[in-house]
Amino acid sequence: MSGIALSRLAQERKAWRKDHPFGFVAVPTKNPDGTMNLMNWECAIPGKKGTPWEGGLFKLRMLFKDDYPSSPPKCKFEPPLFHPNVYPSGTVCLSILEEDKDWRPAITIKQILLGIQELLNEPNIQDPAQAEAYTIYCQNRVEYEKRVRAQAKKFAPS
C-alpha cells in the first residue's frame, strides 16, 4: 500500500471527524483483525431537504486505489439507486470521479460526498449510466419523482 495514499486518507479521516456536513457519514471499514482499512470507507449521503430525495439516507462505498490521490476513489451505492447517473452496479457516474475528466488530487472526501448529493437531485442527462431511470427522467418527470420519493422512504434511517 502506498504511504502517500494512507497518509492522505488519515488526514481526510481526521478532517472529517473534526468537521463534516450534518447527516453525512464517512467511516473507514475494519479489517478482520480489527485494524482500520483506510482504503475502503462506508459512507452515507442524506437526501437534500426540499427535494424528492429528502428523508432518505443512501449508503455508498468509497474504494481507494494505491495511487490515490492521483486517481479518484470508486464510489458505489449499496444497494444501487434508481438514478440516471448511477450504473446498474451502483457505481456513480460523475465527472469529478473520473481521472480523465474533472478529478483533481486536491478534491476531498467531503467535496465528493457533497457533489454526489447535488447530483442526486440534478442528474447530468449528457452522461446517462442507467437506461430506465434516464428514460423516465426525460419522458415523465412526475413518475420519476414518485419513484425517487418511494426510494427515499425505503432508505429512511430507522
Rank of each mutant, 00 (worst) to 15 (best):
F155A: 07
G56V: 00
P69L: 02
P52W: 11
L81Y: 02
A44D: 07
Q11N: 09
G3A: 00
T91R: 09
Q126D: 10
A156W: 09
G47R: 01
D33Q: 03
K59S: 12
P84V: 15
Q11Y: 13
A26H: 00
S7F: 02
G3R: 07
N121E: 13
I136Q: 11
A129E: 01
M36P: 02
N121Q: 13
K153T: 08
E132P: 07
M39E: 14
A106K: 00
K154I: 08
D102F: 08
P52R: 09
G55S: 10
P80E: 11
G90L: 01
Q130Y: 06
K74H: 14
L60P: 05
K49F: 13
G47N: 02
N85A: 08
P72Q: 09
D102A: 13
A5D: 05
P79T: 13
V86I: 08
G55L: 10
N37H: 12
P72R: 06
L113P: 07
G115L: 00
Q139W: 09
P84A: 12
L94P: 01
K49Q: 10
N124W: 09
E54S: 12
P21V: 00
D66Y: 08
L63Q: 14
R141I: 12
P79N: 15
F24D: 12
K76M: 13
P52Q: 11
T35D: 02
P80V: 07
S158A: 12
I4D: 15
G90K: 02
K76I: 13
V86K: 08
Q117F: 12
T35W: 03
Q130E: 08
T35E: 00
E122I: 11
A15E: 12
V86M: 12
L97T: 15
D100N: 14
P32N: 13
E42M: 07
I96T: 15
K30E: 07
P157L: 09
Y68D: 02
Y68I: 02
P52F: 10
I109C: 07
I125H: 02
M39I: 07
P88S: 13
F24Q: 02
N124E: 02
K65P: 11
L120A: 06
Q117A: 14
D66R: 07
W16T: 04
K14A: 01
K18H: 08
S2G: 15
R61A: 10
A133M: 02
G55Y: 15
G23F: 03
N85Q: 01
A133E: 01
I136K: 08
R13K: 04
M62T: 08
E54R: 06
R141W: 10
D127Y: 12
G90H: 00
C75V: 15
F64G: 03
W41D: 00
F22C: 01
I125Q: 07
Q151A: 03
A26P: 01
L119K: 02
Q139L: 11
Q139N: 11
L6P: 07
P157A: 12
N40S: 13
R17P: 04
V25D: 10
C93H: 04
G90D: 06
A133Q: 03
L60F: 15
R141V: 10
K65F: 08
P84K: 00
T29L: 15
L119D: 04
K74P: 10
E145G: 08
A44E: 13
Q130P: 03
Q11P: 11
S2T: 11
G56T: 00
G115F: 00
K59H: 14
K153S: 10
I96E: 00
Y87A: 03
D100K: 12
F64H: 03
W103F: 08
R141P: 13
F77C: 03
R147D: 01
A150T: 11
A150V: 11
I4E: 12
W16M: 02
Q130M: 01
V92E: 01
W103M: 05
R147P: 03
P88R: 15
A106G: 11
S71Q: 12
D33P: 01
E122A: 12
G90N: 02
P157I: 05
F24G: 07
C75D: 03
T35Y: 05
P105F: 00
I109M: 11
L38R: 00
S95R: 01
K101Q: 09
A5I: 15
Q130S: 09
A152L: 00
R17G: 02
A131C: 13
P128Q: 02
K48M: 10
F155I: 09
Q111A: 14
C93N: 03
Q117W: 08
R13G: 03
K101W: 08
F82R: 01
A156I: 08
L119G: 05
R141A: 10
A152W: 04
R17A: 00
C43L: 04
I107Q: 11
G56N: 02
L114K: 12
K101E: 11
G34V: 05
F64D: 05
Q151D: 03
L120G: 04
C43P: 08
R104V: 05
V142Q: 12
S70G: 14
Q111H: 14
K59Y: 10
Q117M: 08
L38I: 05
I112D: 05
R104F: 01
E99I: 02
A44G: 14
G50T: 05
P157C: 10
K48H: 08
R17Q: 03
I96Y: 05
L114R: 09
N31I: 09
K74D: 15
L81N: 05
E143A: 12
A26W: 09
P80A: 12
R8K: 00
C43K: 01
G56S: 06
R147I: 08
V92Q: 00
L94Y: 03
A133K: 04
D100C: 03
D102R: 02
L38Q: 00
A131W: 00
L114G: 10
I4R: 09
A44Q: 01
F22P: 03
Y68L: 02
Y144K: 02
K48C: 06
R149I: 13
P69W: 06
K74N: 15
Q117N: 09
D102I: 06
Q126L: 10
E118P: 04
E145Y: 12
P80F: 12
T29A: 13
T91S: 15
K146S: 15
Q139V: 03
L113M: 11
F22S: 04
L113E: 02
D102C: 11
G115N: 01
K153R: 12
S70T: 12
A5K: 06
A152N: 09
S7M: 14
K146Q: 09
I112R: 02
A129Q: 04
D127Q: 00
F24N: 05
K110S: 07
T29V: 07
P46D: 05
N31T: 08
G115Y: 05
R17H: 01
A44Y: 15
F77E: 03
M39A: 07
